[in-house]
Amino acid sequence: MSFFTFAWDWVTQAANWHGPGSIPHQVLAHLGYSGLSLLVAALIAIPLGIAIGHTGRGAVFVVNLANAWRAIPTLGLLILLAVLLGFSFVTWLVPLVVLAIPPILVNTYEGVAGVDRGVKDAALGAGMTGWQQVTRVEVPIAMPLILVGLRTAAIFMVATATIAAYIGLGGLGRYIVDGLASDQYGPVAGGALLVIILAVAVLALFAGLSRLIIPAGLRRQGRSE
């Protein structure tokens, strides 16, 4: 049997849709963990990225962070904090936030810092204050990249929250970790499929969001990771 038949058989069992630990329950929990981490990370990383991009101060730090953050093994960081801090709210929130910050920070910085020099000069020359330059020109123009950063972080959070089940977090990762522990491939495959669907749904959500948020004048321009 293939992955999909295993996964589908398990997902469609009526018993998995009711009671505590049911699929709807774990999907919500998974979204909750990912969403909360993303929100906290965004509240830290977006203002910081804008400030660094606008002033140019701290740019070296951000550029190096961009290279370093992929090297951090998520599983190791989660486990280390769990062992050091115990299993608590902080244990899973801190590493998730820490891991979500770099892509948002780096993309926000690049978006703001990368605004065309002529455009920045024109904004200044038109008599905009620093705040007006940021809010009316730099952030709207950086919006495609800020959204890319948020999207990357959101997808990353869905994946990381799955792994966090290993240190006791709820969510869809529970099915995978518990199934692996008891050698049952059904829930493992089912959990994996749901995680994949969730990740792709987040991707689609951001695709829709960018259509809504990105100004039409910028939409033609290419976007990159």
Partner: peptide, 13 residues
């Protein structure tokens, strides 16, 4: 103020 690269805001009409 007019500059060579125009500096038009790409996100505005």
């Amino acid at each position: 103020y007019v500059i060579q690269q125009t500096g038009l805001f790409p996100h505005r009409t």
